[in-house]
Design a protein around this nucleic acid. Structure first.
Length: 575
RNA sequence: GCGUCCGUAGCUCAGCUGGAUAGAGCACCCGCCUUCUAAGCGGGAUGUCGCAGGUUCGAGUCCUGCCGGACGCGCCA
């Protein structure tokens, strides 16, 4: 139980007493609205409760009067120094300083486990599906943000106590992989000495050259002029395997490893899609119907066709969605809904990380999950906006046609994994992100990666320096002053941040917390520049030094733990 | 035309799922280096939270309608 939950329980206990003696009625709704949080203005105290305001209506009492009663009861608590009523009925609580001293010890004792949520062993895992790029080439920067956000979210949920499955859906069925196979066949012919030109519509990238060469070495000219039917399936399999290897290698550069790769082709072959269709047909959620012409510009070759449609309008979608094409093949959505049903059968919740260009398809898949799981499992699709690449302020130009796009490997090799991972989390994922190659490696206050690393490195530097000082075993934490305790209070918010970020499924909050924590440490550090008596190391006062080093170690510990959840390594020194 | 997301300081963005006087960095001005890393820190000025209604003790946050921007919108993936 973290420190906020602990005092939340204290407030709840007092409310229980008021309910018991009839002062206020038992009202579950207003009880749920009680929050205990750090006040925006630290001058207001350590924690603020809205209990009186939330309960006043049901109790039909003046919130300030009710607040006074609760505050009086709170101030009798041994760990609470003062509890005062403020504003419209807030109760501002100031804790005894020993509470914060104990919390500092708790941080050091818990180490990497500080802030970790209790395991939830009885529930199925949360499934986080991310990346899921088509296996048709290496990862480029468009995939990078979703990869990092998904991976960090998975880690965050794990740290919060959930079991998590990291999953990659391989789109190895459908037209794109046939195009891939044909592209590889051209490279195969090229490897046999033919002069080939890559026509529009096929994949032009050089990364297919070795795949073609390997096939040429293995099969010679056997498929050189053979009809497509002879080689397509086999070339497709080989090409997909090669592309997946490429993608896994790219992901490994970022430290990303999925637990499970699910194949669309295997899913279709298993009959799971037919089963999903049969289920929905039996419930009249799939029917034969004709779609209206598309909105906006109607293409000239538009013709109405009868198709099996999923009744997604029953769940708030604009139109019903086809699950099979007119040739009888599954649509992407048809297979995808069965895939999600399969995932749901082994999960307590589903999270998908998708590029914002797929925003239009969110409703139908959420609808399908609701229908196929009878609302047992909720799918949460998190959209990730694009990354705009810059080099010293100039946009980096990319052209798909020439295959001239910036790959993920290029970026990681240039600026490093930690920088890429941290930067991808410095904004809400729904907002576009600017990534400037020059800026992200800059060593300045403006660069959040550097700023956080610098705080950690400074602490390590001091600890190295203090290594040969004789210090008391028990640090006298009562010698820390108010400003030093304020840093403890900020670090002690880490468990709360974990809970909030995990609940909101917003890993970027960790990055913002880290910037705040680093900033608070730098502030404290600089007091030593203004006045040497405020430095961490005081050579003729081992007690004070020990207390301040405990504070520094606790700060470094929280920075390391938070960075680890983001998948970033803490730097011990900067060069 | 429709859908999703976004609109907060001059700029880039937070805002803890409804709380107190809306915050941070940059840029601007003023201070701080015989030092545990000044690669930094402190102080100062900055707002019709796109607009208009509504919900309630209380709205940047929730609802409705507009305005503006991004992305998307056929059986593609």
């Amino acid at each position: 139980m973290n420190i906020f939950e602990r005092f939340d329980a204290v407030v709840a206990g007092i409310v229980d007493e008021l309910v018991a003696d009839g002062t206020i009625p038992a009202d579950a709704a207003s009880r749920a609205a009680l929050v205990l949080e750090p006040p925006r203005d630290p001058a207001h105290g350590d924690m603020a409760s809205n209990a009186a305001m939330a309960l006043a209506k049901a109790a039909r009492q003046n919130p300030r009067e009710l607040a006074t009663r609760i505050a009086m009861a709170l101030s009798r608590h041994a760990n609470i120094a003062t509890a005062e009523v403020a504003g419209p009925g807030f109760i501002n609580i100031r804790l005894e300083r020993t509470v914060w001293e104990d919390e500092l010890r708790a941080i050091l004792l818990a180490g990497n486990g500080y802030g970790r949520g209790k395991p939830k062993p009885d529930v199925l895992p949360i499934n986080v599906e991310y990346v899921s790029a088509n296996p048709t080439g290496p990862m480029h920067m468009g995939h990078c943000r979703g990869a990092v956000v998904g991976d960090a979210l998975a880690s965050l949920l794990q740290f919060h106590g959930h079991e998590v499955v990291r999953e990659y859906y391989v789109n190895d069925a459908g037209g794109q992989v046939d195009v891939l196979a044909r592209s590889v066949h051209l490279r195969y012919r090229e490897a046999l000495g033919e002069a080939v030109e890559i026509p529009e519509g096929l994949y032009p990238g050089d990364y297919l050259i070795p795949v073609g060469a390997a096939l040429a070495a293995e099969f010679g000219d056997r498929f050189q002029s053979a009809p497509e039917g002879d080689w397509l399936a086999m070339f497709r399999t080989r090409a997909i395997d090669a592309m997946l290897a490429l993608i896994k290698a790219d992901l490994a550069l970022l430290g990303i490893h999925h637990d499970r790769f699910s194949s669309e082709a295997a899913l279709q072959a298993s009959g799971a899609v037919d089963a999903a269709e049969a289920d929905l047909r039996a419930r009249d959620l799939v029917y034969q119907g004709t779609l209206p012409p598309p909105k906006g510009e109607t293409p000239e070759d538009w013709e109405p066709v009868e198709l099996p449609l999923f009744r997604s309008t029953a769940y708030g979608d604009d139109i019903d969605r086809p699950i099979r094409k007119s040739d009888g093949q599954w649509t992407y959505f048809g297979a995808d809904m069965a895939y999600h049903a399969e995932k749901a059968s082994r999960s307590s919740a589903l999270v998908n990380i998708w590029g914002a260009d797929h925003a239009g398809t969110v409703k139908r898949i959420e609808a399908a999950v609701e229908a196929l799981t009878h609302s047992r499992v909720k799918l949460d699709v998190r959209l990730v906006q694009m990354v705009r690449l810059f080099r010293a302020g100039e946009p980096v130009k990319m052209s798909k046609r020439s295959g001239n796009f910036v790959t993920l490997a290029d970026v990681v090799n240039e600026v490093g994994r930690d920088v890429v991972r941290f930067m991808m989390l410095t904004k809400r994922s729904e907002a576009p992100l600017d990534f400037d190659f020059a800026h992200v490696v800059e060593q300045s206050r403006e660069n959040p990666v550097f700023y956080v690393h610098y705080a950690h490195a400074r602490i390590q530097s001091v600890l190295r320096k203090a290594a040969d000082m004789a210090l008391p075993e028990q640090a006298p934490l009562d010698r820390l002053d108010r400003e030093e305790l304020a840093l403890v209070q900020l670090a002690a918010q880490w468990p709360r941040i974990v809970g909030q970020a995990a609940t909101a499924r917003e890993p970027h909050r960790i990055a913002f917390f880290l910037s705040d924590l680093a900033g608070a440490f730098h502030t404290l550090w600089n007091r030593g520049n203004d006045n040497p008596a405020n430095r961490l190391l005081i050579s003729d006062d081992p007690g004070l030094t020990a207390a301040r080093l405990a504070l520094a170690r606790a700060t470094a510990q929280v920075i390391r733990t938070a960075l680890a959840v983001m998948g970033v390594t803490a730097a011990d020194e900067l060069r």
